[in-house]
Design a binder for these strands. Structure first.
Lengths: 207, 207
DNA sequence: GTTGGAATTGAACGAGCGTTCGAAAGACCG
DNA sequence: CGGTCTTTCGAACGCTCGTTCAATTCCAAC
């Protein structure tokens, strides 16, 4: 069943498609554009993918799965709510910054899927959101009641993080670590009134 | 030159178009969809608008102009940086919440314009962003150095605000005032370490 | 060198797209 | 009523779209 050669070609197809989707948008991009960008013939694309929508779906699912897997790894064994939040944010932004095209497609083309494909991705989003909401609950338990509605806080944080494809340049002078720390500080300071000192934030989410 | 009857019809065309664009996306929507939604014939649409792109442009420009005008009004005569920030945020979110469809189109279809039309809208965005950046500078002057990069802070705030079309329900149990106060508190607490008490936030941005 | 499945393709299909245009209908004034 | 300017529209044009399919090429196994 497994076919490594085919999987590898599918991978390059998906990543070159993500690049074109990110640049011109999903609906603006034609299958002919994707064929040209990936070096396959138009009909050849359909050997690897059932439809244009499945192509978008595979991009979204693969990358979201990677984000979630990284998040689980980053949170494993960590109990301090502040550090858990930091690791959640850092994992999200780190993956975002190193996969800008794919994540722009995931963030911006959320509404382009339909039916079961949309359902599956939305389920992953619900699972992911739930983890953040739980961290917020832990934060409140350890640092007193929050200054604002938990759901509003969670989506505000997602807003900060998911908006970065509109302005952030991974090659610019703001590194990912600075970005993560900034967003964390912004959020923690306002959410539970925590002035976050440099030292309390880990240098990296690894480990 | 001025033709009130024509302007009014154009208005209803723009707002019904915004509704359809917001629901299905700009590129997904056909001119036939717009004709059907506005009750005009397909050819009739072109009597009011030069092209589909100009239609999008007019929606974006009109509403952005309204946001900027409201912001100028809200800031006029106010010197306290904290209150200026609150009014900036409140104006933005209030307009957003009362014009969800139009603002979703403005936020989500930013990249669909090209050439001069794109340029004009981008110029307005630059002007708008500059006002926020200036408020942040005032904040730093009066409340000590910020805890993070000013540009990162500004775009994080825009992220919180512009992301709301992805989750916020104006008819739900979270009112606009609560939303504005939440976002302000989140931002101010993290940006300059300001714990914002209830009383220091105005009840409304009017006046 | 033949076989057989995997991989690839050129060419075509039907549908829908944005836009145009000449003509019809309506509104206002003499 | 007749004339003129604004508004509306049915019908069509040329084009691009996502998708299909029969035919071909590739390549490892015998």
């Amino acid at each position: 069943m497994a076919n490594p050669m085919r999987d590898q070609k599918l991978d390059t197809l998906l990543s070159s498609a993500a690049r074109v989707f990110a640049q011109h948008g999903y609906h603006q991009t034609s299958m002919r554009d994707l064929a040209r960008a990936s070096g396959i013939s138009l009909a050849g694309v359909y050997y690897y993918v059932r439809s244009k929508e499945e192509l978008l779906y595979l991009i979204q699912r693969r990358n979201f799965e990677a984000v979630i897997a990284g998040m689980r790894r980053a949170l494993a064994g960590v109990t301090n709510p502040v550090e858990r939040l930091y690791r959640f944010v850092d994992n999200h932004l780190d993956y975002f910054a190193t996969h800008m095209a794919e994540m722009k497609v995931l963030s911006h083309e959320a509404g382009a899927l339909t039916g079961d494909l949309l359902q599956t991705v939305n389920d992953m989003k619900r699972e992911y959101t739930r983890v953040l909401m739980d961290i917020l609950a832990e934060l409140e338990a350890s640092h007193g009641p929050a200054h604002l509605n938990r759901r509003v806080a969670a989506y505000s944080l997602f807003g900060m993080m998911n908006w970065i494809y509109n302005w952030y340049d991974p090659l610019g002078d703001v590194g990912v670590e600075l970005l993560s720390q900034s967003v964390c500080r912004l959020f923690l300071g306002g959410y539970v009134g925590l002035p976050v000192p440099e030292s309390s934030l880990p240098q990296s989410a690894a480990g």
